[in-house]
Amino acid sequence: MAYTQKVVEHYENPRNVGSMDKDDPNVGTGLVGAPACGDVMRLQLKISDEGVIQDAKFKTFGCGSAIASSSLVTEWVKGKTVEQAGEITNKEIAQELSLPPVKIHCSVLAEDAIKAAIKDFQEKRQKKQAAP
């Protein structure tokens, strides 16, 4: 299948590949998978105490569209607040990358990863506040 220019660009030069310390209280980790294809995606967000995303890293084992979707969202979320990042939808990702219908699930995976990372961060924060 032919990938669009933008997908190829992200695939060949993925932004922000890597990992962060998942035990850091300011790091939210989202780990999601797609049983339909057996691929996995990890997205990590470094979030300030004020709720602003300072950095983002990803590691995706999957097809070009999955890598491009996660690479793209690491660029998009930086500088956004947690609330703004949580509003990113798979439609926007798919549109930006011109993903064909059979690859829409890759953008869904990326959206799920953002939400999972935010949830992880918020749970950590609640635990911290609950601790004496």
Partner: peptide, 9 residues
């Protein structure tokens, strides 16, 4: 999923 991630890495 963590196990899969580790194996793939």
């Amino acid at each position: 999923l963590e196990e899969v991630m580790e194996r793939r890495e």
